[in-house]
Each structure stands twice: as structure tokens, then as C-alpha cells.
Amino acid sequence: MQEELKKPAPLMELKRISHRYQTEEGEVEAIRDLSFTVEQGEFVSLVGPSGCGKSTLLSILAGLISPSGGTATVGGDPVKRGNGSVGYMFQHDHLFEWRTIEQNVLLGPELRGKVGEEERARARRLLETYGLGEFRRATPRSLSGGMRQRAALIRTLVPSPSLLLLDEAFSALDYQTRLAVSGDIREILRREGATALLVTHDIGEAVALSDRVIVLSARPAVVRAIHEILPRGLTPAQRRDSAEFHEWFNLIWKELELT
């Protein structure tokens, strides 16, 4: 009892989440009885076969759909759409071509009707720090794929969400850019002290970036295994070079094959 009280509450907690979609063709059970937590400052990856319900899970966490069963909390509160506690990043950057980079990254405050000096300053600081300062007034068209994804990340960070959801956020990039950008973004998240949940089907990416990797089964998704990747604090490049990298890779590969 005493022990439990000392441990800080997890930032995000999923308790027995299930979800079924109703369609013309019938019922699709996407998730069954899924429970896990993410601690403050952690980077957690979810790997699972495609179509197993990963995006559904993120939609639940963002409050975009409500689950058929179970509870999801972020920072102790039940998730609620648009309350700013969760940031979402997609496979494509979805920068608006008709806006400058600065207007793009200020989208969050703008939607909540408060683009003050504070928000502007934060956006400017993030753009400066992460190499996009001189592109503030440029249109997305003039940025490379990696820079665009970085701008999309900054757009997500500007409203200071407590949890970041990354849905296959790097999979639209070519292999080399993907390595560079994912490492880059991992570093930004570390420096900003952000907590992130990444969905990916790239096992190498999951192992290289994460503190923990959660392996999901085929649909309906249940937790197959949770791996703590130690030691923490390595950069993705160091991780990829480490001796354990391939062991982790092969282990998770086998677990996914079982599904």
C-alpha cells in the first residue's frame, strides 16, 4: 500500500479498452480489453500488424472516437477531444499549403482563439531552435520532406500537449530521410521533455527510438508483450549500433510472426 502511494501516477492510462465498429457489412472488433500505461517523459512504441487497431487506439486517446468499453485517462482526467492535452501527428505532415510555416505552427492557439505574444514567442523559439527560423514566412512548398515533418511536429508542440501521438509519423519518408528525421524528432522530444506514443510497423524504428515497445496481436488488438529497452538515454543511432539491437529486433519479429 505504502509502496504504491510513492509511485507517481502514470501520465496516460488505458484500462480494459475495447472497440467495435458497426458497418453495413457487420461488426468489426478492432480492440479487445487493452490495458497499458505511459509514464511522464517516456517514449513508447506500439508495434502490431497492419489493421490490428493501432490508429483506432490513438483516435480513442485523442478523444476523436469514444471506445465501446473501458476508460482512457491522460494526466488523470478522462480524454476529451480538443482540450489540448493530446497532440496528434500523422503519416503526412498535412501542412496547409496556403499558410506560411509560422501560421501553420500557430494553428492550435488560433483554433482556441488565443494567438498572443506568449504563443508567438513559443512558436518562434521552437522554429529557431530546430532550424526553421529562417523559413517562418516561407510556404510549406519550399521545405524538404524532413523539414516539413519537423514543422508538423512543432505545430503539435506549440499548444504544449502532455501526450504526443505519432501515427506512422515517419513511414511516408524514404529510408534515409526516415532515419534522419526520426532521430531528429526523438531528440527534440527528449529536449522538450515530451511524452510520446508512436505507432509503427517498423520494428527497427520502434527499438531505436523507444524506452518501451508494446507488441500488439492481430485484430482484435491485445497486448502480446511489453519490452523495456535498456539502457535508456541512448540516441537512436547509438541504439542501432548497439549489440542488443538485433536481439530485440529478432525477438519482436518472432512475436509478430506468432500473431
Binding site: S59, A62, L64, R81, G87, Y88, F90, Q91, H92, L107
Partner: peptide, 24 residues
């Protein structure tokens, strides 16, 4: 996904229309 992005950041249906649907 562009609509989801705006909704996720708390955008109303009106904002979805004027900030995403109409300009695109």
C-alpha cells in the same frame, strides 16, 4: 486527416469548414 488534425486541436465544425474545407 486534415479535418482530424483540426478537430483534435479543438476546432469546431465552423473552423473545420473555414480553415480546411473552404481553402482546400
Amino acid at each position: 486527416d486534415k479535418i482530424r488534425l483540426v478537430e483534435c486541436m479543438g476546432g469546431s465544425r465552423r473552423q473545420v469548414f473555414f480553415k480546411v474545407v473552404a481553402p482546400s
